[in-house]
Amino acid sequence: MDVFMKGLSKAKEGVVAAAEKTKQGVAEAAGKTKEGVLYVGSKTKEGVVHGVATVAEKTKEQVTNVGGAVVTGVTAVAQKTVEGAGSIAAATGFVKKDQLGKNEEGAPQEGILEDMPVDPDNEAYEMPSEEGYQDYEPEA
């Protein structure tokens, strides 16, 4: 019985440690998101679009440190934060509304985080759909 109880105690310690790591990862992701939003706020009209992409990228980098179902929630929060940063930029006159959601080359930025393969159960990952990809044929 002692062996059984000791095993359960060790398992509990492992769960607590994993929860603490997840909590730490979420806190880091939130900190990076805040950094990115402050970065966007300090940019001029020309830099705002690039700044919004930076927020998304920093958040995406930190999301990889967070495991399990938390990833889905962090990704949703990050996307809403990026959308909010863009709205703030438009409201303050840093950028025109028609410039939001495009990178410096004018290509749409939507789907940055949505296409990231995420499995809350950590069982399997699927690649994003290939609808947006084109076949590449090298020139002879």
Rank of each mutant, 00 (worst) to 15 (best):
K45L: 13
G68R: 15
G14E: 04
S42G: 08
E57K: 09
G68I: 14
P128S: 00
G25R: 08
E20P: 00
G84Q: 15
Q134I: 13
K32T: 06
V66A: 06
A91E: 05
V37I: 14
K34W: 02
G14C: 13
T92E: 08
T59P: 01
I88F: 09
E137R: 12
T81Y: 03
T44A: 15
G68C: 14
E110T: 09
E61C: 09
K6S: 12
P128R: 13
H50K: 08
K23M: 15
V71R: 06
K6C: 05
A91F: 13
D135T: 11
A27V: 08
A140P: 10
E139C: 11
K23L: 06
E13S: 07
K96D: 10
S9P: 00
V63Q: 01
E110S: 02
K96V: 15
T64A: 10
G51V: 12
K96W: 15
Q62A: 09
V40L: 14
A89C: 10
G93M: 07
V15I: 09
V40E: 00
V66W: 13
P128T: 14
A107P: 07
N103L: 07
K96Q: 12
D135P: 10
K60I: 10
K43A: 07
M127S: 08
G31Y: 10
P120N: 04
T92F: 07
V3E: 01
K10N: 05
E139T: 02
G106L: 12
A89W: 14
L100W: 11
G106E: 13
G36S: 07
D121P: 11
H50R: 09
E13H: 10
G84F: 04
A11R: 01
E137Y: 02
E130T: 05
E139Q: 10
G101P: 00
T75V: 11
I88H: 04
E13A: 08
G7N: 06
K32M: 02
V71I: 00
A107H: 10
K6E: 04
S9R: 12
I88W: 05
L8W: 15
Q99P: 04
A107C: 07
A78R: 07
E105G: 09
V55E: 00
T33Q: 00
G41S: 10
V71K: 15
D135V: 07
D121E: 15
A89S: 07
E83F: 11
T64P: 05
G84H: 13
L113Y: 06
K34P: 00
E28G: 09
G25C: 15
E126P: 08
A89E: 02
E130L: 06
E126H: 14
G25Y: 07
V55D: 01
P138K: 08
E35D: 03
G73C: 13
E20S: 04
E123T: 09
M1W: 00
K80T: 04
G132A: 15
L113K: 14
D121S: 09
K10E: 02
A140W: 10
L100N: 09
E13D: 01
E35I: 15
E46T: 08
T22P: 05
T75Q: 06
A27S: 15
V77Y: 15
A91C: 14
H50M: 14
V16L: 13
A107L: 13
V37H: 00
A89M: 13
T64N: 07
T44P: 01
E126A: 05
F4L: 09
A30Q: 02
V3Y: 03
A76R: 05
G36I: 14
Y133R: 12
K32N: 04
F4K: 00
V26W: 11
N65V: 15
T72I: 14
A18K: 03
A11I: 14
K43R: 11
K45D: 00
G106Q: 15
A29F: 01
T81D: 03
A30F: 05
V52A: 13
A11E: 01
E57F: 10
K60H: 09
V52K: 01
A30P: 02
V48C: 08
G68Y: 10
A91T: 03
K58Y: 13
V3Q: 03
L113C: 08
L100Y: 13
K12N: 01
E28S: 06
A107G: 09
E105P: 14
D115L: 09
Q62N: 04
K6F: 11
F4Y: 11
Y39G: 02
V118D: 12
A30V: 04
G132W: 12
A89K: 07
K60M: 08
K80C: 05
H50C: 07
G101C: 08
K32H: 05
Q99M: 12
I112Q: 11
P120H: 04
V48L: 06
E131F: 02
A89R: 11
V37P: 01
E61R: 02
